[in-house]
Amino acid sequence: MITVEHLTRRYGRFTAVDDISFHCAPGTVTGFLGPNGAGKSTALRALTGLTPPTSGTATIADRRYVDLPNPGRVVGVMLDAAAQHPGRTGLETLRLSATMLRVPTARAGEMLERVGLADAGKRRVGNYSLGMRQRLGIASTLMGDPEVLILDEPANGMDPEGIRWMRGLLQDFAARGGTVLLSSHLLGEVQATVDHLVVIGQGRIVAQGALSELLSGHGTVVLGLSPAGLRTALESAGLSTVPAADGRWKVDGTAEQVGRAAAAAGEVLLELRDADSALEDLFFELTDSVDRRHAA
């Protein structure tokens, strides 16, 4: 469980993180989303005790990170997969963690196997691809058998197959009662993985909530047997339309409103659904509105 309350971090006159508050509950995967330079990494460093916050608090399992007697046994943290010593083998990297965490050294081999690096354990990390380093970093976070995972851009450098694998791993972790917070600057990367979102722009939270809630209320897509006739029917019912792909209309209204308007005019519907990829729009809309507010 992660709780962040009014967290602020300033560097001189620059406010990197501006009064953010959010909560990550056990059993959920939360995406921490924002463009580069939005303050994601600063917030995660403040959360993990690497950067003292200017004001506000951040707790994991009800304790400040720096007050956890053995943080790695409670929360697995990966802030940069590239920050590993290239001259050390993957297996040795995990063994060092095992010693620090006071868990059996044999767990290093088990975790390598779990992330699909069993054959690469004896190779030096310098010879690993970024995707392999991400896997090694995830293995490190799992060493202490934690209840919380905090991952900064874990999908960075991973191929689609690797992203799919990680999605399964994180969802499995949450399904067993774990809490996951992962950041990304690419929405598509995390859209299928997370069930909650915290969207940050220019250091401030611009939207947060369940993924399904954030996606709803953004209109309907409809395809009729006669696109022109359907449009007339919709407009006369007071619903505004925007052309979408292949004769479809994007309508500012609910499925019920669209269906009733079509039925009243005797128009035949071939397709009726909620508009998708709205999260992408939302992401740009939200971060853009922050930009404009700051410019004004």
Partner: peptide, 28 residues
């Protein structure tokens, strides 16, 4: 990603030892 193959997600073994604080000896 040449050598990394994705294994099926398996439930990992829990660590049975209790959580003990990070010690100076382990740091050393």
């Amino acid at each position: 990603m040449s050598t990394a193959t994705a294994p099926a997600v398996r439930t990992p073994q829990p660590v049975r030892s209790p959580i003990r604080p990070v010690s100076f000896l382990s740091m050393l």
